[in-house]
């Protein structure tokens, strides 16, 4: 049993378009799993199904071995699922620190909301900001920071709940080269803490160097799964990325 199982051929349709077409894959504890594929391959739709923002037409999502396909979004979060968004969903009119504080507050639950915060709370917020390297952005408004930084902020927010599974949607886009490198190290650490990380990512250097397993999607279908080296050499993947022509020449 893996931490997350997208099983029984998940299908999502929007009008006449099939966004996810009989997809099944898994993500395990302690591993960084990559979800790659060309634009429009259905990666973000998969994330929406996993995190509960979308109900699939068919298929099952299992988390910790339990069927969560019809569990509401917030309850999946409580069971240890955290996600970031491709189109930023930072709380734009709050400061960076308050974004993380809000996440910590939500995690404390209703009782926590009505009691004043403790000093340990502030320390927890500081630690989270420090972990993703946002300490010196703490006082900025969240809609005034660069995209890459806002993605790190979303990650810090997720970590407030100490989730067992992190769903990261294009976490490195907007980061520069050295930031991306540091982010790769952070990803390995997060997995080493005993978390599962599933990420949609376009930066192939990052994907190939950080992921333990990769699932490649193309028009809603899983066309290949395996270790980075296998994926890189896979003809179907190259076809998906480069088009049909001249595959031989590339490989």
């Amino acid at each position: 049993m893996s931490l997350l199982e997208v099983d029984d051929d998940v299908v999502v349709r929007f009008g006449g378009v099939t966004a996810v077409d009989h997809a099944s894959f898994t993500a395990g504890t302690g591993l960084v799993t990559g979800l790659i594929g060309p634009n429009g391959a259905g990666k973000t739709t998969c994330f929406n199904v996993i995190s509960g923002l979308l109900r699939p037409a068919k298929g099952t999502v299992r988390f910790h071995g339990r069927d969560v396909t019809s569990t509401p979004v917030h309850r999946r979060a409580k069971r240890g699922m955290g996600r970031t968004f491709q189109r930023l969903e930072a709380f734009g009119s709050l400061s960076v620190r308050d974004n993380v504080r809000a996440a910590v507050d939500i995690n404390r639950g209703l009782g926590g909301l009505l009691t004043p915060g403790h000093r340990s709370q502030a320390a927890r917020v500081d630690a989270l900001l420090d972990r993703v390297g946002l300490t010196h952005y703490a006082a900025e408004r969240a809609d005034a920071i660069p995209t890459g930084t806002a993605r790190l902020l979303e990650l810090a927010r997720c970590l407030a709940a100490d989730p067992a599974l992190l769903l990261l949607d294009e976490p490195s886009s907007g980061l520069n080269e050295s930031e991306t490198e540091a982010f790769g190290v952070l990803l390995r650490e997060l997995a080493a803490d005993g978390r599962g990380v599933l990420m949609v990512e376009h930066d192939m250097d990052l994907v190939m160097s950080v992921c333990d397993t990769i699932h490649a999607l193309d028009f809603g279908r899983v066309i290949a799964s395996g270790a980075p080296a296998e994926i890189r050499g896979d003809a179907a993947v190259q076809r998906a990325y480069l088009g049909k022509a001249d595959v031989g020449q590339v490989a």
Partner: peptide, 23 residues
């Protein structure tokens, strides 16, 4: 306080609040 922060957070992004565990 904390509730006020959450109010603003809810206004800015209900989806993020949901995935962070808020009903």
């Amino acid at each position: 306080g904390a509730l006020g922060r959450l109010l603003i957070a809810m206004r800015d992004s209900p989806a993020a609040c949901g995935t962070l565990g808020l009903d």
